[in-house]
Design a protein around this nucleic acid. Structure first.
Lengths: 144, 144
DNA sequence: CTCCGTGCAAAAGGTTTGCACTGGT
DNA sequence: ACCAGTGCAAACCTTTTGCACGGAG
């Protein structure tokens, strides 16, 4: 929780205000914000911050293993403070993304990729469909 | 195979040279080209073709169910003539993508999303790792 | 002949980069 | 004081869009 200062020291990385604030705003959130959304939220706390810094800092956190980057099909990348592998539900219509923490769901053995010339070491499962709001809209107005 | 002319007629869609050539270049291929790659390949056969047409035509084929669009994490979309759901192996280093047709791999029941307010109707599994070439490079030069 | 499809160029959206300055350590 | 981190703007990559022309039906 607060040992992130140690993590930075161990890597010889300066702990700047920008990094503190962005890390703060990422932890303990259950949504999956895009870089743009993090940017606009953080602007309230650090008015002069640049979009580039947000991107750089989020990518740094990913490299440090502090957060996870998710690339939903056809939309901006999202960032997730939950680092362990887990499954996401994505709304095809509005892009809303929620964690799916059902036991047994989304747990696969890593297959042997040698027949394909691959060393497989990770996987990602994304379920897609419609969230409640979008399902409602679609049934009300099936056209368009 | 050749009934695609019928498919177009049924939809009242003109069958243009561009569509013929792009469909031709897509069928029977086992790689997973990006729109840009299709564009440069097709330029050899139709010198004046525009990038926009390639994008429009590929998307049309996806709507017609003739091909599939794949969105690998963090890179340009790929197109796949194999329409049925199947699993992909993606090289994290070079982006190479191969089909993984092992029986039983990548077949999941659709979970009940109601607890999350979702109607789940599809999913995608991507295994990731290193292809043989990139694995070789990494072991030879672990740094950088 | 009538439209739809196309080519072109520009815009849009998301992300990265080069460079000078600033702020941690 | 040093050097990495930052802000800014421009570049970049992928994809979409507006519009006028041209070819398929």
């Amino acid at each position: 929780m607060e040992s992130f200062e140690r993590i930075f020291r161990e890597h010889g990385l300066p702990l700047t205000v920008q990094r503190r604030v962005i890390l703060d705003s990422m932890l303990d959130r259950t949504d999956h914000p895009s870089a743009e959304r993090v940017y606009s939220e953080v602007q309230a706390k650090i008015p002069g911050i640049s979009r580039a810094s947000v991107y750089r800092i989020l990518d740094l956190f990913v490299e440090l293993g502090l957060i996870q980057k998710i690339n939903p099909p056809g939309m901006a990348a999202r960032f997730d403070p939950t680092v362990r592998r887990h499954t996401h539900l994505v709304c095809r219509s509005c892009g809303r993304m929620v964690d799916m923490d059902a036991p047994g769901i989304g747990v696969l053995p890593l297959p042997d990729g040698r027949a394909y010339g691959f060393q497989i070491d990770d996987y990602q499962i994304n379920f897609s469909g419609l969230c409640a709001d979008c399902a409602k809209k679609h049934t009300q107005q099936p056209d368009k």
